[in-house]
């Protein structure tokens, strides 16, 4: 999911940077003082998730968990993901500092989207919670992949080629993220249900 340095053109890098800064500013306003710790913990979870490799076919995929971060944090997931990506670029060399904005948009944009799309379903409880959580995990990766393909359009291949290539590789990851998000949400619903409402409670 991380785009490396030196691939994208300057206009896309600039657009990504501006969008990421706006998103981060909105997100920071949404962080209630009581939930700073949860935000930083979910940011850490996102930070380490990229290291979890699951062998799929000939290659392997790594978890992203942006769906999970999104449904719990809502807009606050933008700063959470941006900081985690910054540290990943600095410490692991994933992505890079110039592409930080674009990578933030690719991963945090879908996080906010699934919060609005599936948040109400998850708060309803019961079977719709399980389904909503699965869809949130899956759709977040789907949207991220589409954004990734869109960002890469300006490089060498056409959008459709790139998207087809990426989507094929990401289908196992979508299912996996769906399942992981489903289990984590079911677990949280049992042990700490207020966490699933927290983005709502902050700004009713």
């Amino acid at each position: 999911m991380h785009i490396s340095e030196g691939i994208l053109t300057l206009p896309i890098l600039a657009e990504g940077g501006v969008l990421a800064i706006i998103g981060t500013a909105i997100g920071l306003k949404h962080i209630d003082t009581d939930h700073i710790i949860e935000t930083s913990l979910l940011s850490s979870a996102f930070f380490v998730a990229s290291l979890a490799h699951i062998p799929v076919g000939p290659g392997s995929v790594h978890l992203v968990l942006n769906g999970l971060v999104g449904i719990i944090l809502g807009w606050a997931s933008v700063p959470a993901i941006a900081i985690a990506l910054f540290l990943q670029a600095l410490l692991f060399g994933f992505g890079g500092l110039t592409v930080l904005g674009v990578n933030t948009v690719i991963m945090a944009g879908p996080a906010v989207a699934v919060y609005y799309l599936f948040g109400p379903m998850i708060r309803k409880g019961g079977r719709s919670r399980v389904l909503g959580a699965f869809c949130a995990g899956m759709v977040a990766i789907l949207l991220s992949t589409c954004l990734l393909a869109l960002a890469l359009v300006a490089t060498d291949r056409s959008f459709l080629d790139t998207a087809r290539l990426l989507l094929g590789a990401q289908i196992p990851l979508m299912l996996l993220e769906g399942v992981v998000t489903m289990f984590v949400v079911s677990f949280l619903a049992r042990v700490q249900p207020e966490l699933l409402n927290f983005a709502d409670r902050v700004h009713p």
Binding site: T33, I36, S40, L41, F47, I83, Q88
Partner: peptide, 17 residues
């Protein structure tokens, strides 16, 4: 690096809190 990164994130959260 992994532990360091987690430390940074939790530390920043603590600082903000």
């Amino acid at each position: 690096n992994i532990i360091g990164g987690i430390g940074w994130l939790v530390g920043l959260g603590g600082l903000a809190a």
